[in-house]
């Protein structure tokens, strides 16, 4: 019997967790909509895993509240557990068991049995592209494949929400891409995905991003909105020879100019400058073979602006 699926999959209000006197998560509030891929970003120790573990009912919040799939994590952790899938940061299936037996065990722990269990195990193996590996000992598989096994284990019971804690850490780029294809497929089928990552390129796949720094949620929006908000300047890539770096830096409306490989990275007030006018200025000041292109600011720029370079930099 399913409760009606709320439009808000996850809601956190003032969610706080202390370890002793140390504040690991500091009054975090956000909402995640149903079917959304929500990215949770932050440096090591920012409090990402702690937030997830509170949302999964594994760790009691010190303060604040959260509802997941409409259930309060404090008062009905069991109902929460039945509605979510969780992939912890550390690989945590049984390394000494074959893939299919791992899945059969976790399926059983979710209450699946008999034909329903066998059918579902086959289904998730197929979905994760693991059909040929069902009898392989889990510990013998490479990292990228293990992560797919873990994801398969997390969705056995068709959870409405999955929490993935750094699912692609230490995984090669091809496997990362495959893994993200799986995540997007899940989301397309209506599963809400709450994912933490170190990789800023992956964050671009997320519909919205929450940025954590030292236990606080410092920014929360879609990647494009975050860029507009945190990097209001226009960013230009300037190529050429004899570029007058010092002259540029003292030009009104130019906020920063840094060497970037053989070229220059330049941030300027969008009201005062565009590519053509910058090129004209540079040629006039002695530049040769000048080419100026406006470029999209990256999430890394956002991260640096939001978190500040003094706090450990990009994740």
């Amino acid at each position: 019997m399913s409760a009606p699926a709320p439009e808000t999959a996850i809601r956190a209000r003032g969610l706080t967790r202390r370890f002793g006197s140390f504040l690991a998560v500091d009054a975090v509030s956000f909402e995640v909509e149903r079917g959304e891929i929500f990215g949770y970003l932050g440096a090591n120790g920012a409090g990402k895993s702690t937030t997830i573990r509170m949302l999964c009912g594994l760790l009691e919040p010190s303060e604040g509240e959260a509802t997941v799939a409409g259930h309060d994590v404090r008062s009905s952790p069991d109902a929460v557990k039945s509605s979510i899938g969780y992939m912890s940061q550390k690989f945590s299936l049984y390394l000494d068991l074959p893939v299919a037996e791992n899945l059969a065990f976790f399926g059983g722990a979710y209450g699946l049995s008999g034909r329903a269990l066998r059918g579902r195990v086959d289904e998730v193996l197929e979905l994760a592209g693991l059909g040929a590996l069902r009898r392989a000992e889990t510990g013998s598989l490479p990292g990228g494949i293990r992560q797919r096994v873990a994801l398969a284990g997390a969705i056995l019971h068709r959870p409405r929400i999955v929490f993935l804690d750094e699912p692609t850490a230490g995984v090669d780029p091809v496997s990362r891409r495959d893994f993200w294809a799986l995540i997007r497929r899940l989301a397309a089928e209506g599963t809400t995905v709450f994912v933490t990552t170190h990789y800023l390129d992956e964050a671009e796949y997320c519909r919205r991003i929450g940025l954590m720094a030292d236990g606080r949620l410092v920014a929360l929006d879609s990647p494009a909105a975050l860029k507009r908000e945190w990097v209001p300047d226009r960013v230009f890539l300037v190529r050429g020879r004899e570029l007058p770096l010092e002259r540029l830096r003292s030009t009104p409306g130019v906020r920063a100019a840094e060497p970037f490989g053989a070229a220059l990275h330049l941030r300027a007030d969008p009201a005062a400058w565009d590519a053509a006018r910058l090129a004209a200025l540079l040629r006039q000041a002695g530049g040769v073979d000048v080419a100026v292109d406006a470029v999209e600011p990256s999430l890394e720029d956002v991260f640096l602006a939001a978190v500040g370079s003094g706090k450990g930099g990009a994740p």
């Binding site: 799939a69 109902a79 039945s82 049984y94 000494d96 065990f105 059983g108 209450g111």
Partner: peptide, 25 residues
């Protein structure tokens, strides 16, 4: 999945899953 876990049948299924896993390991 149903939101309500509990139930003797579910508990039995879970128990058997754990027993089988322990034996295999």
């Amino acid at each position: 999945m149903s939101g309500a876990p509990g139930g003797l049948r579910t508990a039995l299924v879970q128990l058997l899953a754990v027993v089988r896993k322990e034996i295999r390991q």
